[in-house]
């Protein structure tokens, strides 16, 4: 495998690691490494100037037509969600710009996007494979969890753990614990 293709897979690996890190920890305090790793992975994708061989080159060509409308549309989604009437407060600037961006993404989609050959067959098998893998993963985790012997009763919480639990409950019920 040539260097360009290796960097391509390194970028993909970093993106998956970054998103995995983003799922760690309580919802109000996710891992701090998530965004930097995702950023490094994205930069590696974009700034990789080394020649890339097949099959990665095919995927990269597809990404070139996919990325423009995808990023514009995602930004539009974010702005529309921010501007939508939640608790009767509508943010019209965000809402309007969001819908303009979503409309623009339709234009980019029609102008640049090309579906790969045999996309239907590819999609069906990819989705089926992903569903089977996820199902198997759930079964494996369930098997492992069921085979772990019961542990002794947990010791009393330490002061640090008590503070942590208090902080979680305070945040959830909207009370400042300071």
């Amino acid at each position: 495998m040539i260097l360009g293709s290796m960097l391509f897979w390194l970028a993909f690996f970093l993106l998956v690691v970054g998103f995995s890190f983003g799922r760690m920890g309580p919802s109000f305090s996710r891992s701090q490494f998530s965004l930097p790793i995702i950023l490094i992975g994205t930069l590696l994708f974009v700034l990789n100037n080394y020649p890339i061989e097949n099959p990665e080159a095919d995927l990269l060509n597809f990404l070139h037509s996919f990325a423009p409308w995808f990023f514009v549309c995602s930004l539009g989604f974010y702005l529309v969600l921010r501007g939508s009437p939640i608790y009767w407060r509508v943010r019209y600037p965000e809402l309007t710009i969001g819908w303009i961006l979503i409309s623009l993404s339709f234009y980019l989609y029609l102008k640049h996007y090309e579906l790969p050959e045999n996309f239907l067959l590819m999609t069906i098998f990819s989705v089926l494979g992903a569903i089977v893998s996820l199902f198997l993963f759930i079964l494996l985790v369930r098997f492992v969890e069921n085979n772990i012997p019961l542990e002794n009763p947990a010791p009393e919480l330490t002061d640090e753990e008590k503070d942590f639990v208090t902080r979680i409950i305070s945040i959830n019920i909207g009370v400042d614990d300071k």
Binding site: M1, S5, W9, F12, P55, E56, D58, L59, F62, L63, F66, F70, L115, P116, F119, M122, T123, I124, F125, S126, V127, G129, A130
Partner: peptide, 15 residues
Amino acid sequence: RFSLVEGLLGILVIV
């Protein structure tokens, strides 16, 4: 590599 690329294409096409 081939399978990963095909899988990624298959997922991205649904987006």
